[in-house]
Nucleic acid binder design. Structure first.
Lengths: 251, 251
DNA sequence: GACGGCCCTTCCGCTGAGCGGAAGGATGGT
DNA sequence: ACCATCCTTCCGCTCAGCGGAAGGGCCGTC
């Protein structure tokens, strides 16, 4: 039988077999999910485990290992960014007592790099290291609004997935929203992922003024909490974004 | 020429070429650090970059990519643990206003999984994703004290690296400290890594009662700040450790 | 302009690292 | 005992991976 692809690609396929919904897998499950023969999987997994990229627990299942996370933590766009942003995220968390999030753009999705949550804050489905589409989240809208036109067109070309009845799914509506974000400098996403949540987000800029991340607070939506005034969060989110930008060398 | 080791091992060697002191590398530097011929390095790096494990910036240098961190964030012992611990870390941070850290054991070192720092807190050299030896840090002493005897003997066999004049470097002294940690349930490490810092650490337990992590506060050392009373932090650190343990299913 | 140092990028004949079917084993449930 | 599921080991075969060689780009120095 001919090999389907390179060893490197196979190794990476093994790593990509793990997900938030399938964080622990048997050898056979990894084989199935990757399409690699069991013996091949066995060889690769064995080596990855020896190195620490995968760890095998008492139940015989494999999970992503500490060593992989450790190397991954060197990524400037994740924990490197988080390091610079943390004081300002903490400040924002202090003054709002709500969910605070930091995210970056990757492909056509946002990747959440950090999150600080109060026990009393509205629950959010985001996970550090997790992804969501650009069009439906505060941080995603900020990142999309400031991205190259080609990317914007690509996203606008759809499909724009619906999460709730409030999710922006029409390209013309999204286009207007993006223009508004660029004009006002903040994005307000109300009930687009979950009806109970509203996020206020602002752009974080790098040394050359380019938008490199977005910071947001997620608060109860006015629909379920009439006392919520989204606009009251704008100054604090802006201040946090400016602080982080400064820490990143933006002048 | 005979290959020195497998493709998988080579891929992992490329990833391991990156470190906190060398987070960005040229292709030639990666080749040098791994000992792989330039052409081989070029092939592997190209594929890793295509996948997102490495990212190449405008300066032509490679750095660890977001995708690798993203997969790594699935590791139960890092961000998975952090997720459960975060509320309690935040509480500890609130009540102390000092550095708060969460760490796990790997090999003969601690790996820092999370850190919350106040701007006014004493500076610490630890980095999320970074490592330090077990014998010289509060969290390390906790993890070592509760580790299998073989590991303890291995560490006691040395070498025990010295960081300051206060670092415990004699095996008999360390053995006594470990017994003390087990007896009192907390570790106090005074000026062992930096003379200006003192840490108070306690064990975090998993469902079966096994120690799976350690939580600590790092405060100014009494030597430089005579007003510091380390014992005053013990109850709060203990409470945080208990809270995290409970969240992990320990009863 | 010439030269050297450094950092790539591409090519392609050769061969041994990687492949995976086959065989066998362990465990748990019925 | 049988079956399903999940491994673990073996080994002949072949093509994926190898890396020296060739070539190129960029920058600094003389």
């Amino acid at each position: 039988m001919t090999a389907r692809f390179t060893v490197t690609a196979r190794v990476l396929a093994v790593l990509a077999a793990f997900s938030a919904t399938n964080p622990r897998l048997t050898l056979t499950e990894i084989s199935r999910r990757t399409g690699l023969p069991l013996t091949t999987t066995h060889r690769l997994v064995g080596e990855l485990a020896a190195w620490g990229a995968l760890e095998r627990a008492g139940d015989g299942r494999y999970r992503i290992g500490l060593r992989l996370w450790e190397v991954g933590s060197l990524a400037p766009r994740s924990l490197g960014l988080r390091e610079s942003a943390m004081p300002f995220l903490e400040d924002l968390y202090e003054v709002t007592r709500e969910n605070v999030q930091l995210a970056v753009l990757d492909g056509t999705e946002v990747v959440y790099v950090e999150r600080l949550s109060a026990r009393s804050a509205v629950s959010v489905i985001t996970r550090v290291g997790g992804r969501l589409p650009l069009h439906a989240t505060g941080v995603g809208l900020v990142l999309l609004a400031h991205s190259p036109p080609e990317l914007q067109e690509r996203v606008l070309a759809g499909p724009l997935r619906r999460y709730t009845r409030k999710t922006i799914c029409r390209p013309d509506e999204l286009r207007r929203m993006l223009a508004d974000v660029r004009r006002t400098g903040v994005a307000i996403s109300d009930g687009q992922i979950e009806l109970v949540s509203l996020s206020v987000a602002a752009p974080v800029r790098g040394p050359g003024g380019e938008v490199v991340a977005a910071v947001s607070v997620v608060v109860p939506a006015p629909e379920t909490h009439p006392a919520t005034n989204p606009l009251s969060y704008v100054p604090a989110v802006r201040a946090a974004a400016r602080g982080i930008s400064r820490a990143l060398g933006h002048s």
